[in-house]
Computed example of a mutant assay.
Amino acid sequence: MSGADKEVTLLELPEPPPPGPGQLLVAVEAAGVGPWDQLLSDASWDVGLRPPAALGVEGAGTVLAVGAGVTGFATGDRVLAHEAPLPGGSGFWAERVLITAHHAAACPAGLDAVHAAALPVNGLTAVQALEKLDLSQGQRLLITNGGGATGALAIQLAAAKGIEVTATASAATAERLLGLGAIEVVDYHDPNWPAKASGGFDAALIIATGTADAALGLVRDGGRLCSLTSDAPAEERGITSWDLYVEPNAAQLLQLAERTAAGTLRLAPQPLPLSEGPAAYTQAVTGQARGKKIVLTPA
């Protein structure tokens, strides 16, 4: 499935090459879809795609072949991964993908492929953002777009550490987010939403485009702001402000997978057949997924 010319279409692609040193060849059982895939399709995010190629930088599947020097994985093992750059020049929206072994995490026995594939990019983004924000129990965090896949995971991870989370989201998702651990949900449809939030936050996590400046005004002096939308505002009042871009991390991914398998981290995947990839892509990049994480499956 190619998107190199901004048009995502179904294609017959050649098989990936055999795995080289440090690589795994994986039979894809499920692949995640997200708004970042638009960056791949228009080459804004260079992950090594060599068109014609499949999109997709996350997924889960079974190891078909192991390259030289790889330890810890064998043929038949189930794995999940976020991979960028893609060593085979093609992504997870395909039947097979070539990945770097040290970016892969073992998939726990209790975790199905759809939930595993829904986890890597959103989960790693949430973990890495919270690590950078470095909040402790009792501190207060504002998350914009708490109803999305990354926001929902960030709420759960923060709440588990005793961080008090206020999230912006639609009124329709408020009950779900409160159930995930948020202590307050502010309706972002209200143009005066910043005044409805209590302010004085120790940190803000920006997941909704265009909310960084308003959120900055709600962060206390000396606080922190982390933007996932590449629009971190200039630092002021001693507030540290930066943009964050997700990186592959197998150790973090394994912890996320184990928590999901144990039921302490909840996901809301929406599986679709790979044949519906173009429609899934459109839903993801136009914000029509409605908080659901779209996952493509080969069958």
Rank of each mutant, 00 (worst) to 15 (best):
G3H: 00
P16V: 12
G20E: 13
G22L: 13
Q23G: 09
V26Y: 06
A27R: 15
A31M: 04
A31H: 02
P35K: 00
D37A: 04
D37S: 10
S41W: 03
A43M: 05
A43Q: 11
S44L: 00
W45M: 15
D46E: 05
D46R: 01
D46K: 00
V47P: 01
R50Y: 01
G56K: 07
A60E: 07
A60Y: 09
G61C: 11
L64C: 02
V70M: 09
T71A: 11
T71K: 06
F73S: 08
G76F: 10
L80V: 13
L80I: 12
A84D: 07
A84K: 13
G88V: 07
G88A: 02
G91Q: 11
A94D: 13
V97G: 04
L98W: 03
L98H: 02
T100N: 01
H102V: 12
H102C: 12
H103R: 14
A104V: 03
A104N: 03
A104M: 03
A105P: 04
P108S: 08
H115M: 06
H115N: 13
L119G: 00
P120H: 01
P120A: 01
T125W: 00
Q128E: 12
L130T: 08
E131V: 03
L133E: 02
L133G: 04
L133M: 03
L135G: 02
L135W: 04
Q137D: 10
G138R: 13
Q139M: 13
L141Q: 08
G146S: 15
G147N: 11
G147F: 10
G148F: 04
G148W: 05
A149D: 09
A149Q: 12
T150I: 06
A152F: 07
A152Y: 08
L153K: 06
A158W: 12
A160V: 01
K161M: 10
A171K: 11
A172M: 08
A172K: 15
V185G: 03
Y188T: 11
H189V: 14
D190Q: 11
N192I: 00
A195N: 04
K196S: 09
A197V: 05
G199C: 02
D202Y: 05
A203N: 13
L205R: 08
I206P: 05
I207A: 12
T211R: 10
A215N: 03
L218G: 04
D221A: 15
G222M: 12
G222D: 07
G222E: 09
R224G: 03
C226R: 04
C226S: 03
L228A: 08
T229F: 00
T229M: 06
S230A: 15
D231M: 14
E236Q: 15
I239V: 15
T240M: 01
S241N: 02
S241K: 00
W242E: 02
Y245R: 09
Y245D: 10
Y245Q: 12
E247L: 14
P248G: 10
N249L: 02
L254W: 05
L254K: 14
L256T: 12
A262F: 06
T264V: 08
L265R: 05
L267E: 09
L267Q: 10
Q270S: 09
L272H: 14
L272F: 10
L272R: 15
P273H: 14
P273G: 15
E276F: 02
P278F: 02
P278H: 06
P278G: 03
A279T: 08
A280N: 01
T286E: 06
Q288N: 11
G291Q: 06
K292I: 00
V295Q: 07
P298Y: 09
